[in-house]
C-alpha cells in the first residue's frame, strides 16, 4: 500500500510538469512577439523593449523555462506587469473570499447532494426519483451565472432576505461572512450537486442489489441503517472520486460567480488580468488552481487506499 501511495505521488510530478510547461509556454504559442502582445496596442517601442528584457526573451526557451520553474518552486511567481506587485502577494490578498466560497459550496453540495442521491436510489423509479433526476439535468444545463442572477433577483432584490453582492471577511463575524456567501454558494453548487447526486444514485443502485444488503434486510435491520451504514459506506469510493474531480467545476464556476456577486476574489483577479493581459498573474492563477486540483485528487486517491480495506495495490 505504501508503495502505491509513493507511486501515486510520483505520478503527479509529470502531470504538474506538463501543467507548468503549458502555463509557461502560454506566452510563446501566441502568434507574434510575446513582448508586444503583453505590451498591448498602445505600447511604445521602448515599452516593448523593457518587457522583452524583463522576460529575458533573448535566451533559449528551455533555459528560461528552467529558471522560471525553479523560481516557482521557491514560491516566486514573478511580478505583475500592471501593478508591479509580486504575483504571490496579489494572490494572497484575494485568496480568502475564493477559498471561503469554495469551502461553503463544497460543504453545501455534499450535505444536499448525497442524501438526494441516496433517496433517489432508495425510491428508484418513483416520482421523487424522477424529480431529483430532472433537477440533475437542469443543474447541468442552466449555466452558473444564470442561476446566480435568478437567485440574486429573487432572494436579494425581491424578497430582500440576503445581500445582493459583496463579501465580508470571516474576521468580522460568522454570520456577516456566511450571509454574503449563501447565494453564491447555491449558484456555484448547482452543477456540483447535480453531478454528485447522479453518481450517488448510480453507485447506490448498484450496491443495493448486492447480497449483503439482502442479508441486512433479512436480519431485520431498519431502512435507514441499511442505506446509510451498509450501502453508503460501500458506495463511498466513486462518490468521493467524483467530489474530487468536480473541484474543476468549482474552480471554473467560482470565476463567474464572483463576477456576478462582486466578490473580490481570485476570479476577479483573473478577469482583470485577462483584460489587462497581465500574463504573470494569469500564469500564477492557472498554476495555483491546477495545483489545488491535482493535490485534492491525489489526497482523495491516497485517502481511500487508507480507509477502504478492499483497495490493495
Amino acid at each position: 500500500m505504501l508503495g502505491y501511495i509513493v507511486r501515486r505521488i510520483l505520478a503527479t510530478i509529470p502531470v504538474m510538469g506538463v501543467v507548468a510547461l503549458f502555463v509557461f509556454s502560454l506566452l510563446y504559442i501566441a502568434p507574434g512577439d510575446p513582448a508586444a502582445v503583453i505590451a498591448g496596442d498602445q505600447a511604445t517601442p521602448a515599452d516593448v523593449e523593457r518587457i522583452r528584457q524583463s522576460l529575458g526573451l533573448d535566451r533559449p526557451f528551455l533555459v528560461r523555462f528552467g529558471e522560471w520553474f525553479f523560481r516557482i518552486l521557491q514560491g516566486d511567481m514573478g511580478t505583475s506587469i500592471f501593478t508591479n506587485l509580486p504575483v504571490w502577494t496579489m494572490i494572497r490578498q484575494r485568496i480568502e473570499p475564493t477559498l471561503s466560497l469554495m469551502i461553503v459550496t463544497l460543504i453545501l453540495a455534499i450535505v444536499v447532494a448525497v442524501p438526494m442521491g441516496v433517496v433517489a436510489a432508495w425510491k428508484a423509479g418513483s416520482w421523487i426519483d424522477r424529480l431529483i433526476m430532472a433537477f440533475a439535468v437542469f443543474g447541468f444545463s442552466v449555466p452558473v451565472f444564470v442561476v446566480a442572477y435568478i437567485l440574486a433577483y429573487v432572494f436579494a432584490l425581491e424578497l430582500e432576505w440576503l445581500p445582493v453582492q459583496g463579501y465580508t471577511p470571516l474576521s468580522e463575524g460568522l454570520w456577516p461572512w456566511l450571509e454574503n456567501l449563501i447565494l453564491p454558494a447555491i449558484a456555484l453548487g448547482c452543477v456540483y450537486i447535480a453531478l454528485i447526486a447522479r453518481i450517488t444514485r448510480a453507485t447506490m443502485l448498484e450496491v443495493l442489489s448486492q447480497d449483503y444488503i439482502k442479508t441486512a434486510r433479512a436480519k431485520g435491520m431498519g431502512q435507514s441503517g441499511i442505506l446509510f451504514i451498509h450501502a453508503l459506506k460501500n458506495a463511498a469510493v466513486p462518490i468521493v472520486t467524483v467530489i474530487g474531480i468536480g473541484i474543476a467545476f468549482l474552480i471554473g464556476g467560482a470565476i463567474v460567480t464572483e463576477s456576478v456577486f462582486v466578490i473580490p476574489g481570485l476570479g476577479r483577479l483573473t478577469i482583470d488580468a485577462i483584460l489587462r493581459r497581465d500574463y504573470p498573474v494569469i500564469q500564477g492563477v492557472v498554476l495555483l488552481f491546477s495545483f489545488v486540483y491535482v493535490f485534492v485528487n491525489l489526497a482523495v486517491d491516497v485517502l481511500y487506499t487508507l480507509i477502504d480495506p478492499r483497495i490493495r495495490y
Binding site: P14, V15, M16, G17, V18, V19, L21, F22, I247, A248, F249, I251, G252, G253, I255, V256, T270, V285, V286, F289, S290, Y293, V294, N297
Partner: peptide, 11 residues
Amino acid sequence: DGLMSIPPILL
C-alpha cells in the same frame, strides 16, 4: 493528464 488538470474554463 496535464491538460486535464487545468479546469476547462480556466484553460
